[in-house]
């Protein structure tokens, strides 16, 4: 056991800076531009021309009923879905035009810049917590092992999981698993964090510990796109809220506007259903 485990502040290589802070400054410059994203599964048109712009340091929250296409948008940004049309470009990277066949390298270009946190954490069950976190840095990004381990340990320490580093995922609570999922994404040092309903699979009493980590990351200046049903979180953490329904963005704006004076009838009905389910 290292001396940092008895509550003494960590003195690792990251002691100078907060391990939770993003690499790039949240300077409000445009980071990601998506235009006219379309996607169908068979006859089912799930996205009908989605535009999205994300600035460095911005928290964009996608809300909307099930099947509205929120998750498909998010997965498209990470190359887990291939849109049928439209463009996605990270500033400084190639513009991927999905109206033609996009080569494999396009998907890797997206994953180079973004990292996903899944609804069902999708931790690797055959690896310990620490191995889960360093797998990407060591195997993919070729970070020196000692450096990757030190950075992973600092991150785990920071989210209160230092003593779980050698545990297997099945030995953790749902909230701990999801926090490891977040750390695994952070360890890749992406420009953009993508959260796909990160608390939907959790027991209600575990939702808070995960949301507070995400909120902390937002406060640190991370750029993120979050799909969630947690409207309270959206209200507190979002810079911009997009309400999606039927494969289109019905309404977008600051959370204060969307939640208090929505202009669209569909937005109003959706918010009513969630905030006053018994009426």
């Amino acid at each position: 056991m290292s001396p940092t485990d008895d509550g003494v502040p960590p003195q690792g290589p990251d002691a100078a800076g907060d391990p939770l802070a993003p690499q790039a400054a949240p300077d409000d410059s445009v980071l990601l531009t998506a235009r006219g994203i379309r996607k169908s599964f068979g006859d089912n048109e799930v996205l009908r021309s989605i535009d999205l712009e994300v600035r460095r340091g911005e928290v964009v929250v996608l809300i909307g009923p099930s099947g509205s296409g929120k998750t498909t948008v998010l997965r498209s940004l990470n190359g887990l879905e291939t849109p049928d049309g439209g463009t996605i470009a990270f500033t400084g990277g190639p513009e991927l035009d999905f109206s033609a066949a996009v080569p494999k390298s396009g998907r890797f270009a997206l994953r180079d810049r973004s990292a996903m946190v899944f609804q069902q954490h999708n931790l690797f069950p055959h690896m310990t917590v620490l191995q889960n976190v360093v797998e990407g840095p060591i195997r993919v990004q070729r970070v020196p092992k000692a450096q990757a381990l030190a950075e992973a340990s600092a991150l785990l320490e920071r989210v209160g999981l230092a003593e779980k580093r050698d545990a297997y995922p099945f030995e953790l609570s749902g909230g701990q698993q999801q926090r490891v999922g977040i750390v695994r994404a952070l360890a890749l040092k992406p420009d953009l964090l993508l959260f796909d309903e990160p608390t939907s699979a959790l027991d209600p009493e575990l939702v808070g510990e995960v949301l507070s980590v995400i909120k902390e990351l937002a406060d640190e200046g991370w750029t993120m796109v979050v799909v969630t049903h947690e409207l309270g979180f959206a209200r507190q953490a979002a810079d911009e809220v997009l309400f999606m329904d039927g494969g289109v963005v019905v309404e977008r704006g600051a959370p204060g506007d969307i939640f208090t004076k929505p202009t669209e009838e569909r937005t109003r009905r959706f918010l009513d259903r969630i905030l006053r389910p018994l009426d």
Binding site: A115, N122, L123, F124, G136, R139, L188
Partner: peptide
């Protein structure tokens, strides 16, 4: 092996072959 395991491998930047070798085959 659940599809999410492949996707988790992809999202940390793995190729299909690496995800197969490091994530899928051990399980």
């Amino acid at each position: 092996v659940p599809k999410g395991q492949w996707e988790a491998g992809y999202t940390i930047g793995m190729s299909h072959a690496t995800a197969l070798r490091r994530i899928i085959l051990p399980q």
